[in-house]
Nucleic acid binder design. Structure first.
Length: 270
DNA sequence: ACCCAGGGTAACT
DNA sequence: AGTTACCATGGG
């Protein structure tokens, strides 16, 4: 069966390929296939939402949640647009901050360090093929328990380089409970960030990615090279007040804006 | 051959 | 507290 999910400001291509998740592919015009939460999905972009193709009834709630359909992005974009730069960044864009699994997000952004989106996607694909479970449509993301039993050498098929030891350390600390996402979710931003940084290879930026993309902490702003460029160029005194509690969402629009529309300007002489 | 990629660590001032 | 070489790998 097909199921329609209504949602404004949801552009699948932008949302799935803007560097917040790494497990989707465009397999035909306006058709996207991918995995999240151990589930395979095939999606079609619609005018005011998306259609789940050949799906089950109980998939609907999962994907509604995944695409954060409860949150009023139109209202947010309207508020952001009080600022001229953000108005330009939001124009024509429909990026939603997905509700991803914390562990998958943690490992994915450990892999992201000093790396590019294309290769990140490949490493994660090999991670799932080698250590995840085969399900309809692909492979699930491996559990912390599964990865915690491995050594960095066991990850050599991934060709993840120096990050292999970080992946294992993260899996072991999550598996042992030393890093507990449910507890971290209750902490204020700075304490939550520090709690994640006990993992080798996790610094401020990766921690903020876990908070924003994995725990839906919309106030978290990962400071990658592009956002640093945007801030120094447009906002030397910080993001404008109109972002409110949603600086993380504004950040995601600015990130895509910087990379796709402002690359020349922002990388000129730095 | 060189530079960069959704950074972090360790070893320096 | 603030800088800097180095970290594996692959693509431009």
């Amino acid at each position: 069966m097909d199921f329609f999910i209504g949602a404004d400001f949801l552009d699948l291509k932008q949302t799935l390929f803007c560097g917040q998740c790494f497990r989707f592919a465009e397999t035909d015009d306006n058709i996207f296939e991918g995995m999240a939460g151990g589930r395979y999905v095939k999606l079609r972009q619609e005018k005011n939402g998306i259609t789940l193709l050949d799906a089950e009834e109980d998939d609907v709630r999962f994907w509604q949640d995944y695409f954060d359909t409860e949150l009023d992005y139109g209202g947010l974009i309207k508020a952001f647009s009080e600022d001229k730069t953000l108005e330009a960044a939001c124009r024509g864009r429909g990026i939603r901050v997905l509700r991803q699994e914390p562990f998958e997000t943690l490992i994915s952004f450990i892999i992201s360090q000093n790396n590019n989106i294309k290769r990140i996607t490949g490493i994660i694909q090999r991670l799932c093929e080698n250590f995840g479970d085969q399900v309809r449509g692909g492979y699930s993301f491996p559990s912390a328990e599964k990865l915690a039993a491995l050594s960095p050498d066991d990850l050599s098929p991934l060709r993840s380089g120096f990050r292999a030891k970080y992946i294992i350390d993260a899996a072991q600390k999550v598996n042992s409970g030393e890093v507990d996402f449910e507890k971290i979710a209750l902490l204020p931003d700075d304490e939550a960030r520090e709690a994640l940084k006990v993992i080798k290879g996790v610094g401020d930026k990766v921690a903020d990615c876990v908070l924003l993309f994995g725990l839906h902490r919309l106030s978290a702003v990962p400071k990658d090279v592009w956002i640093k460029r945007v801030i120094s160029y447009y906002y030397p005194d910080g993001l404008p007040a109109c972002v409110g509690e949603y600086a993380g969402i504004a950040q995601q629009y600015l990130f895509d804006f910087a990379r796709t529309d402002m690359k020349k300007e922002l990388t000129a002489k730095e």
